Computed example of a mutant assay.
Amino acid sequence: MTVASFTSGPPAPRTDADLIGSNKRFYDALWSEAKLFAPDRFNTWPLVSELAAQTSRRLEVAPGLRPRLPLADTQFVDLSRPALAELSRHGARVANAMIGALPFRDASFDFVCAFDILEHVVDDEGALGELARVAEPGARLLLSVPLHPEAWTAFDDFVGHYRRYEPEAIRALLARHGFTIERSAVYGMQPKSSKLLDIGQWYLTHQRARAMWWYNKVFMPLGVRFQKPLAFTPGFAPGPGVDEVLLVCRKTQA
């Protein structure tokens, strides 16, 4: 097997319809063959359990089958029906909707999570505006995003990313919608080796069924097992080479 290099520059502009279609195809296939991982298996759990104990009306957007918030008493929203069916089977409250049009009243939640989602949508202003709309003043927001457009690879394109963020751009976007960043941590489980990413994408492109089996049965369990504890620092000042961050934010404006 010859594996070509998949490193590339940022993608050509795509429409919402393009992104929705590619995301739905990729994640419906992924979640159809996956099992649900309980929230307490992730390194986000110490933080989440701390914040969940202080809140009562929780929303997680686009969790797939990797929810970070407790299944009980949390509202989950996703575009993937296979993911929603499995979440519901485990007792979660679910709704089929998109981040840009959440079916909830203003100020409905005091704890909102959106992991790995803003980079998938064209209108991130509208998406974050919806998160701000349904969050009450003082609510907590957990948000993860990939950083640095110059770090773009074709793998970002393949999994349906629209952008990577410069640190100041995500800080400014949050501020425009009334959120301040309280603390942050390096986040994510992407391999450091570009060769591993190239091989993984080759299999996803040419032998998808086998790649999905290995991801769901081997690589995902191993990745979860060997996660490092999150190391939070006050505010947000990512060092060089940081691929993805988790931001703990508070809504400060009505």
Results as ranks from 00 to 15, higher is better:
Gln201Asp: 14
Phe232His: 09
His90Ser: 05
Gly9Gln: 12
Val121Met: 06
Asp157Pro: 13
Arg93His: 07
Arg58His: 02
Gly178Leu: 12
Glu244Ala: 00
His177Ser: 05
Ser22Asp: 14
Ile117Met: 04
Gly200Tyr: 07
Phe219Gly: 10
Arg14Gly: 14
Asp156Glu: 12
Arg66Lys: 10
Tyr215Trp: 13
Arg58Thr: 01
Ser8Met: 14
Glu125Gln: 10
Ala169Glu: 15
Thr44Pro: 04
Ser80Ala: 07
Arg225Val: 11
Leu59Thr: 00
Leu65Asp: 00
Met189Arg: 08
Asp243Pro: 04
Phe179Gln: 13
Glu119His: 07
Asp40Thr: 08
Tyr187Cys: 05
Arg41Gln: 14
Pro137Val: 03
Leu71Pro: 00
Leu197Tyr: 07
Glu33Cys: 09
Trp202Phe: 14
Leu173Asp: 08
Leu47Phe: 02
Leu142Thr: 04
Val248Arg: 10
Leu247Asn: 02
Lys192Trp: 13
Leu196Asn: 02
Lys35Trp: 13
Ala132Arg: 02
Ser32Met: 13
Phe109Glu: 03
Glu33Pro: 02
Phe42Met: 01
Ala254Ile: 10
Leu131Ala: 02
Ala132Gly: 06
Phe232Ala: 07
Ala209Arg: 05
Pro229Met: 11
Glu60Leu: 01
Gln201Val: 15
Leu141Met: 12
Ile99Glu: 03
Met212Thr: 09
Leu142Met: 08
Ala175Ser: 15
Tyr162Ala: 15
Leu51Lys: 00
Tyr165Cys: 05
Met98Asn: 06
Arg81Met: 09
Val3Ile: 15
Leu143Asp: 02
Ala62Asp: 04
Pro63Asn: 08
Pro67Gly: 00
Asp16Gly: 07
Gly235Ala: 13
Ala97Thr: 12
Trp213His: 10
Leu247Thr: 01
Asp16Tyr: 06
Phe111Pro: 00
Phe37Gln: 07
Ala12Ser: 15
Leu36Tyr: 06
Val77Lys: 00
Leu118Ile: 12
Trp202Asp: 11
Cys113Asn: 06
Thr205Leu: 14
Ala127Trp: 05
Glu125Tyr: 08
Arg68His: 05
Leu173Ile: 11
Phe179Tyr: 13
Glu119Tyr: 02
Trp202Ser: 09
Asp73Cys: 01
Glu50Ser: 02
Leu222Ile: 15
His177Tyr: 09
Val48Lys: 01
Pro240Leu: 07
Trp45Leu: 06
Lys195Gln: 14
His120Trp: 05
Phe219Trp: 12
Leu36Met: 13
Ala92Gln: 02
Arg164Thr: 08
Gly160Asp: 11
Ala12Trp: 14
Asp73Ile: 00
His90Glu: 06
Val77Gly: 00
Asp28Thr: 07
Arg164Asn: 05
Ala211Thr: 11
Gly129Tyr: 03
His206Lys: 11
Glu60Cys: 01
Met212His: 09
Met189Pro: 09
Leu102Asn: 09
Thr233Cys: 06
Met1Lys: 10
Ala114Thr: 01
Val94Cys: 03
Leu30Val: 09
Gly91Ser: 04
Arg164Ser: 04
Leu230Trp: 04
Asp18Ala: 13
Val121Asp: 09
Gln54Asp: 14
Arg68Ala: 03
Arg57Trp: 00
Pro234Tyr: 15
Ala53Ser: 13
Arg81Gln: 15
Pro240Tyr: 08
Met98Trp: 10
Pro167Lys: 08
Lys192Gln: 15
Ala53Thr: 10
Ala95Glu: 06
